[in-house]
Write a protein that binds this DNA or RNA. Structure first.
Lengths: 337, 337
DNA sequence: CTGTTAGCGCGTTCAA
DNA sequence: TTGAACGCGCTAACAG
């Protein structure tokens, strides 16, 4: 293995000079800089990130913390997209990244978690899929011991940024579009539209804003709205739809998975009402009907999250970032790959 | 951060003694061993894996190398299950693991890849989703510079093990079951059964064994078999089924995704013939019909892969490992979560 | 502008 | 059975 020492020798300079060139320090003559760079190229030198992490305080080592198990399998796609975006960005920014699951932290208190991360020289963490019941992890974030970026959790402090779409507006938008598509019915003297809103679990941070978005739309359009908690579960959404859905004009679901459940319930009942979802996962198409949904670009969100984390680790202060969302209509034919 | 030095001081012994206790060296008196262990517990000491990796040769650092992008999104589930199993096991075995994508290695030759891993003190690699076109990675494996475990690639050497199910037998089994379910038709004087086999891409290592399994079944049951290459694509399978499927008794697909394509083509043509798939992904259910498939436990495969890698890194020699598969029948109702 | 040096936390001889 | 001391590859003062 070729080390920094070899490069120094090859270039006829001191080790520290190589290090300085590597990190773009000022006060290096153009001459030695090129000398060192050619030596690096000739030897195919790659800095040892482990040694670097050990030696410096700002190791540039980060962790992706997620909880894929708690989710249904159908949601794997979301986490995979997160991971792809995050890991790609980490590589681009030359950050060492490890992927961790919530389950590994189970039973630890804040102090233990802190030691755990410190023992790996981790100084920054991106957290995907945290809910209100992950209180110890939230405590850890609050300590400010690590730079953190939270996905879909609206909390910030000096060392913590949050990043998400505007769930309130997104829910409003997709429900509005779906309902207005359906306006003709309304005009046939149908009275106020009857809506079934299947919300997510109350432990989810996105649940309240999405519900708010729906409520304000309901007020605006004077909708007759029934709100039920589907716990982000396809099965629950299915049952709720069987129970309350038959006489509704539109069914609005706070997730694609629940939208699938609702859609299938309607198919079983042999009625059809518009359904809309949230997330924009590919899976959608398989119900064989079309529906509107809020499309989030998880890859891009994760990519930005890592960029933001890097910013935090350089001493910038935490902030809230809103990403754009879009509305899409998914058909079966579209998703044929 | 509490270091080994603190533990040594707290226990009143030398640093090296603590290290020896940590690694279960012999020749440590029971007395000092407990003294050290209580000190560790009292201080909540966690060894710094970075320092350890730097200091020792056998760092215990491993990489998960996969290629999720090349796959269709619907396959994310498989990779997520792999990752879950692998990361869980790595944690259990106290191995530091990083997740890498093939794309990061693009353009590198073997020497560059070697340096790349060495620069991260990585000594073991688990590779998921490699195809015959990833020749440079295969070269890397062949050098024996790293301990490797290959998933679904039948290659072994001194430092490389392979792990997979028996694809030949699995394909045989699932096709056989699906066809025999259909035997009544045959007995109504229907002549030899007509089968459409939609195979995978020839760059896939699993394609040939699956095809073999199908061929030997065809011979055994004297089937009239048509073989087409679906390239593991839903769309291709759909088109092939539209073209060749209408007069077939059974359609056998080398992946679930292709089975979905085939199933949907049949639905469009308004005919129904049994279809079987391969993999056992949850997604299946959404076609709304039932079908047989080979279920692989990806989590478990990955878990075993990491165990095997650990074995290799301890100097054991490479070998081939076969995992069990099972046959399942998937219905829509089953997958409601 | 460049080189010398002291650690980072730990594993591992080699003496004691 | 234990401990002192060196080195892993690198960063970061500090001298020069």
């Amino acid at each position: 293995m070729v080390s920094i020492r070899d490069v120094a020798k090859h270039a006829g300079v001191a080790i520290s000079t190589v290090s300085k060139v590597l990190h773009n320090y000022p006060n290096i003559s153009e001459d030695t800089r090129t000398k060192v760079n050619t030596a690096i190229r000739e030897l195919g030198y790659i800095p040892n990130s482990i040694a670097s992490a050990l030696s410096s305080k700002n190791s540039g080592r980060i962790a992706f913390l997620m909880d894929p198990k708690r989710q249904t399998q159908a949601i794997d796609q979301v986490f995979m997209q997160y991971l792809l975006g995050a890991i790609d960005c980490a590589k681009e920014m030359d950050l060492d990244a490890v992927t961790l699951f919530f389950s590994m932290l189970e039973g630890m208190d804040v102090a233990a978690m802190t030691r755990y991360f410190l023992a790996q020289n981790i100084t920054g963490i991106v957290i995907f899929g945290m809910t209100k019941s992950d209180s110890t992890i939230m405590e850890l974030v609050e300590t400010g011991a690590f730079s953190c970026v939270l996905i879909d959790v609206p909390y910030t402090n000096e060392k913590t940024s949050s990043i998400s779409i505007d769930h309130r507006k997104a829910q409003y938008d997709v429900a509005r579009e779906t309902i207005l598509d359906n306006i003709p019915k309304l005009e046939k003297g149908h009275g106020p539209q009857k809506i079934l809103y299947i919300s997510g679990n109350e432990t989810g941070y996105v649940t309240a804003p999405r519900l708010e978005g729906m409520k304000s739309l309901a007020e605006e359009l004077k909708l007759d709205i029934t709100i039920e908690n589907g716990h982000f579960s396809e099965k629950n959404a299915r049952e709720l739809t069987l129970k309350y859905g038959s006489d509704k004009d539109v069914i609005v679901c706070a997730s694609d998975l629940m939208a699938i459940g609702a859609m299938n319930a309607l198919i079983d009942m042999d009625v059809f009402h518009p359904v809309c979802g949230f997330d924009g996962i590919t899976l959608m198409g398989y119900v064989g009907k079309q529906m509107n949904t809020v499309k989030q670009d998880f890859y891009s969100i994760a990519h930005h999250a890592v960029e933001e984390l890097s910013r935090l680790m350089q001493g910038e202060t935490g902030r809230e970032i809103l990403m754009p969302h879009s509305l899409v209509r998914m058909y079966y034919k579209d998703i044929i790959i």
